[in-house]
Structure formats: C-alpha cells, structure tokens
Simulated assay, not measured.
Amino acid sequence: MSIKMIATDLDGTFLRDDHTYNHRRFAKVFRHLQKRGIHFVAASGSSYPRLAREFAPYRDQMSFVSQNGSVIHVGQQMIRNYPIKAAALARVMHVLDRFYGPNDINQLVISDPLTSYVDQQMDNHNLAIVKTFYEQVTRVPDLRHIFAAQPGQDFTKISINFADHIDLQRVAATLDQYLPASLIIENSGFNTDLIGDAHGTKRNGLALLQQHFNLSADEIVTFGDNENDLGMLAMTSQSYAMQNAHQVIRMQAGHITYDDNNHDGVLKTIEQLLKNE
C-alpha cells in the first residue's frame, strides 16, 4: 500500500535536542512529498502557534495535531478541539494544591486552543522555557482561578513540569486516582505531564485527519519517541520509534529508525521510504 500521510512528533523525534531541524533537507523532502500527494502532519504536545512558527513556509500545505491531540488544524483552519469542563479543571487545580507544593512544580500552564496562561509569579527562566513550547503565553494574576475569571473560554490542556526530585510514576498513580474519569494524563518527556479531555489524544487527532483525508491505516507512517506517542504508533504497521526512544517505546513500534533525532532520523527514514515507493 502506498504512503498517503506521514505524522511525526516534534521534540525528541523530528527536532534535535536544541529544538532545531535541518531546514534545507526538510524543504527538499517536503517538495517530494507534495509531488507524490503525501500529506505531512506535525503531532506534538506543544501549542498550534509554536508548530505554525516551526513550519511557517509549509503551514498551509500540512496539518497539525497540537496540545497532544486536544487541538487539530488543517493548515490554519482549526477543525476540532476537545475542551476540559470547568468542574474538571477546578478538580485538577485542587488535586495539585493538595499533593504538590511550589517547590515540586517548575511550570504550570493552562492553554486554550491558541493562547497559554501562566501565573504572574512564574520566574523569567521558567517563562522562557514555556514560551519555547507554547509561543503565545500570557501571565495572569491567579492561574488557579482562570476558569472563573474567563467562564466562557474553552481550555484544552494543562501542562505540569515537575521538579527533578518528583517521581513521575508516582505522580501518574496519584492523579489517576483523584482526577475525573473524563480526563487523561500522559507523559510527554522532559519531566512533563499533560492533562486534557480523554478524547484529546494524538491517536484520536490523527484518526480525525485520517477520516478527513479518507485514508486507511496502512497508508499512514508515524514517528515518535515517548509515551504520548504510543497510541499514534499503534495505529499503523508503518510506525517508527526513534533510535533515541526508551526501550518500551521501541518495543511497541513496527520499526526503529537507524539514526536518532540529532542526526535527522525522521528525514533520513522518509527519504528511504520515498526511494522504496
């Protein structure tokens, strides 16, 4: 079966560790994809504005699964988002305050489809890190009451970057026990957990695009490196875990890239796939 769509995670997968990529090589690959009618998708825990900036020259010709699947765009048109109910959002804030203090959390971010919000007390160092992944960031007087201050707004994702001394496996066990069943928590690497509506996953976002473009699963190629990529990798037999991925991820993908994210692993694999087409 021929390839009709390629979807890749960004950080730790398509991007190098310094959050850059080989622009010249990608431009050449992208031209070949367009000639063959292969649609390119960026799927990430980051916000749409960050993804649109990373792929600015191509954004009208590709699609985006952002915020781990809570927001889906075809080009610049948002076709779906999965908001968190206000009561569930309030519950998350309550649970975080109950179990974690200010020294346990480096960055707490609440996002709507385009804008991400942080508390005005966040220091400049952590704010700079947040802006790397979320682009459009606004400080608010009290993040924990943002849903009350903006009652009509759809909030789609909560991102929590924990301090190094926090055991993320214990975090997942704790939050799974106390959070509403309507929410899902997924690890996106870098000591960060993402919480959103249970339907807002990369797998569901990519499935929506699959339906939109009328594709079968075996016409899709996926790339990933972390837990939040597993659902997307499981969608198709043409799935690739990165050479630098954890062994658990590598074991569940159909293939493993020859090169890691710092050596154009995704682009080299795509080039080889196009040669074999």
Rank of each mutant, 00 (worst) to 15 (best):
K4Q: 12
M5C: 05
D9H: 04
L15F: 13
L15P: 04
R16G: 06
D18N: 04
D18F: 01
Y21E: 00
H23F: 09
F26M: 01
A27L: 10
K28A: 04
R31K: 15
I38N: 08
F40G: 06
V41D: 03
S44T: 15
Y48E: 00
R50G: 10
P57H: 11
N68L: 05
V71W: 02
H73N: 04
R80I: 11
M93I: 13
L96F: 06
F99A: 11
N106I: 11
Q107W: 05
I110H: 03
S111G: 14
S111D: 13
D119E: 11
V140T: 09
A148V: 12
A149T: 12
Q153D: 07
Q153C: 08
K157T: 15
I158C: 07
I160L: 06
D164F: 03
I166L: 03
I166F: 04
V171Q: 02
A172E: 14
T174D: 10
L175N: 02
Q177G: 12
Y178N: 07
L179M: 10
S182T: 15
S182R: 10
G189R: 00
G196M: 08
A198V: 12
A198M: 06
H199W: 03
K202D: 02
R203Q: 13
G205I: 06
A207E: 13
H212C: 03
L215H: 11
S216W: 04
T222E: 00
E227A: 13
N228R: 13
L230S: 14
G231Q: 13
A234I: 10
T236I: 14
S237P: 09
A241N: 14
A241I: 15
M242W: 15
I249D: 12
I256H: 10
T257P: 07
T257N: 07
D259M: 11
D260M: 06
D260S: 12
N262E: 08
V266F: 01
K268M: 05
E271H: 02
E277S: 06
